[in-house]
Simulated scan of single mutants.
Amino acid sequence: MKIDLSGKVALVTASTGGIGFAIAQGLAECGAEIVLNGRSEATLAHAQQKLNAAVPGVKIHSAIADLGSAQGVDTLLKGLPEIDILVNNAGIYGQKDFYDIDDALWEQYWQTNVMSGVRLSRALLPHMVEKGWGRVVFISSESARNIPADMVHYGVSKTAQLALARGLAKFVAGSGVTVNSVLPGPTLSDGFASMMEDEIKRTGKSLETLAKEFVMAQRPSSVIQRAASVEEVANMVVYVCSPLSSATSGAALRVDGGVVDDIV
């Protein structure tokens, strides 16, 4: 099986690190032209340098924008090349007692995690449909199916992404454009590494060991009994973005290590 994305242009939101960067790198390795997105010039410059080193010769565009508002999305859309692949990876998360989640925080999560994808899809789908080919992927989470009691607001936003992706898949049915969701579980991302930094210093344990302990304590239903790597998540996304996945649309594809305990 060979995935060839030569001639395709992919926008991966929030792609300066973690899962987003791994997806951008995976798509670039298959020949796609990449639009990197981040919120600061410094992080974008670092990501571009890193991607150039990993995939020599890749064509890269950089777009500074915070997608938590309509204005931020408008900023991103200005000057973009024609996009064939949209990966909606931008999102925020954090633990919070339900009683302490005020309306402003609900709105922040909704705007960033849901409306950014709504706005970008609304802007970029018409070209894909007109061309007869395109891929839209929402990076959701196993928390969309397995709502965390300590992150209800996050879980709700991720479930909304599943509904949005399914609805859009029906909306563009028969056009040659597919829309899917990918649901990572616990992942060895930059964010997790930062969260574990003090614990690594305190215990002397490796990040992988601490991640495994976290999975076994907090997600004991995991079948692989460890955290996934960002590359493992990216592999699924790259396939879904490829011509080889043309019969997959409207799907919620789990890369959760089996955390969600069902068979469909």
Rank of each mutant, 00 (worst) to 15 (best):
K2G: 10
I3V: 13
K8F: 05
K8C: 08
K8T: 07
L11F: 06
L11M: 07
V12H: 04
A14L: 01
A14M: 02
S15K: 00
L27I: 01
C30W: 06
G31S: 11
A32W: 10
V35E: 13
G38V: 02
A42C: 03
T43S: 15
T43N: 15
H46I: 12
A47R: 00
A47T: 04
Q48S: 14
K50D: 15
L51P: 13
A54S: 15
P56E: 10
I60L: 14
H61C: 11
I64E: 15
A65M: 08
L67W: 14
L67N: 12
G68A: 10
V73T: 13
L76S: 07
L77N: 02
G79F: 09
L80C: 06
L80D: 08
P81G: 11
N88P: 03
A90D: 07
G94I: 06
D100S: 11
I101R: 00
A104C: 04
L105K: 11
W106N: 11
T112P: 04
N113G: 06
S116M: 09
G117A: 12
R119V: 09
L120S: 10
A123K: 10
L125T: 15
P126G: 09
V129A: 10
G134Q: 08
G134Y: 07
R135I: 08
V137D: 08
S140N: 06
E142A: 09
A144Q: 05
P148T: 04
H153F: 09
G155I: 05
G155L: 06
V156G: 05
S157A: 14
T159P: 05
Q161V: 07
Q161P: 01
A163H: 14
R166M: 08
V172W: 02
A173S: 14
S175C: 05
V177K: 00
V177H: 01
T178Y: 07
T178R: 13
V179Y: 10
S181F: 06
L183E: 14
L188K: 00
G191E: 04
E199A: 11
I200E: 01
K201L: 10
G204W: 09
G204L: 10
T209P: 00
A211G: 15
K212H: 02
V215H: 01
Q218T: 15
R219F: 15
S221D: 12
S221R: 09
S222E: 00
E232A: 03
A234G: 09
A234Q: 08
N235I: 05
V240T: 12
V240W: 04
S245K: 01
S246Q: 11
A247L: 13
A247V: 15
A247H: 12
A251P: 04
L253P: 06
D256M: 05
I263C: 08
